[in-house]
Design a protein around this nucleic acid. Sequence first.
DNA 1: CGGACAAGACGATACGTACCGGACCGTGAC
DNA 2: GTCACGGTCCGGTACGTATCGTCTTGTCCG
Lengths: 209, 209
Amino acid sequence: MSPHRTPDSSRRSDRSRRAIHEAALALVGEVGYARTTIEGIAARAGVGKQTIYRWWPSKAAVLLDAFLDMAARQAAEADASGGGGEGGIPDTGDLATDLKLVLRATVDELNDPATEAPTRALTAEGVVDPVLGAQFVESLLEPQLQLYVTRLRAGQESGEVRADVDPRVAVELLVAPLAHRWLLRTLPLTHAYADAVVDHALRGLSARG
Amino acid sequence: MSPHRTPDSSRRSDRSRRAIHEAALALVGEVGYARTTIEGIAARAGVGKQTIYRWWPSKAAVLLDAFLDMAARQAAEADASGGGGEGGIPDTGDLATDLKLVLRATVDELNDPATEAPTRALTAEGVVDPVLGAQFVESLLEPQLQLYVTRLRAGQESGEVRADVDPRVAVELLVAPLAHRWLLRTLPLTHAYADAVVDHALRGLSARG
DNA sequence: CGGACAAGACGATACGTACCGGACCGTGAC
DNA sequence: GTCACGGTCCGGTACGTATCGTCTTGTCCG
C-alpha cells in the first residue's frame, strides 16, 4: 500500500494548516467540489502545492480535515457558551417530542445552502472511497448516531421504548429516511416529514399491534 | 443553456451505442469510476471519442444510459421467462413475510460485487449533480419504490396496514435504512438486518401502542 | 551562554503525463 | 450528397513529483 508518509508533525505549520482548511471550504462553497483543485487551494491559501501533498493524500481528505476542524471549533464554542457541554438529545420523558425537536434541527442543517455543497461532496466521495467513507462515518456520523442510541436506551429503561428493540437499529429507522431524501432528493425534506417519520417509526405501520 | 445538440438520431449507429455501454460498464468495474475516462471508453469500444461527445453530455450520463439499457434488457428477459410480466411485490396476505423476501433480495443485489462499483459511482454522482440525480431517481429508483407503494396500499385495503399512514413515507421507512447502510457502510448489510428493519417498522418502537 | 550547524518544513516553480473537449480529417452507409 | 462514423491532432488544465532557496527549530561545541 501507499503509507503516505507523514513527516515530523511537530514541525508542522499550524498557520498553513488553517489556511488550507479555510481555502478548501471557501473554494468548494464558491465553485463546487469538482472544480476545486489542489493547485487552487494552494494558491488561495498562499501555500506551496507540495505542502498539501505532504500532509494529505487527496482533495477529499483535505476537505474532511477541514470539516473536522470546523466541527471541533463549533463544539468548543458550544461548550464555552452552553456551560454544561453535552450536546446530547433532550430527555423530557416524551420521546416523540424529543426526537422531533432534534430531527427538525437536522432537517434545517441539511437544508442550509451554506454547508450543503461541501457536505454533499464529502458524502459522495465517501460512498465511492471506502477509506475516506470509514473516516467520515467514524469521526462525524457515528458520534452523532450514538447520541440517539443513548437517548433510546434511556427510553428503554424508563419504559418508553420496547425492551426488545436494538437501539442501534432503531436509530437508523429514524435517521436513514431523512438522509435518504436529502441524498437522493426524491421528495422535499421538511419538518412535516421529520414528524411523520418519528410518528410512523414509534407507532409502527401494522394495523394490529 | 447548452442544448447539447443531438444530431439526426435515425442515422445513429446502434452498434457503437451498445459497444460504448458495454465498455463503460466494464471499465468502471475494472478500474473504478474515477479512473474511467471517456477516452478510455472510446478506445475500449473501438469508437471515436467524438461519437461519445456527440451523444452524451458527461461520463456519468454514459454510465446512466448503460444502466438503463441493462435494466431494460433484464426486464425484457424476466418478462419473457416469467410470463406474467409484472415484477411487483408478492402479496401472500402476510406483509412482513412479503417485505422480508423482497428486501433480502435487495440486500443480495446491493452486496453483489459485480454491480457494486458502477452503482456506487452513479449514486455518488447523483448526490452531487442534481440533474443526473433527478434522472437516476426518476428512471431507476422511483419505479422500484412505487412497487412497494402499491403493495402497501393493498395492505391498507386488506386491513394489514394502518389506514392513516402515507404509503410513500412508509416505503422510505423500509428502504432507507438499507440504503443508508449500503451507502455509508456504517454496519454490515445482512438478511438479519433486513428482517429487523421490517419487524421494527411494522410493530413500531414504542412500548405502549 | 551563544553562535555554528544540520534537519526539515516551508513557498515557489518547472516538469512530464493524462485527460478534457473540440476541430478536423478521409471513409462508407444511406 | 449528406452525415455519422473511426481516427488523429490540438490547446488547455490539473495532476503528482522534483527541486530550488528560504526560514525555523533543535542540538552541540566553545
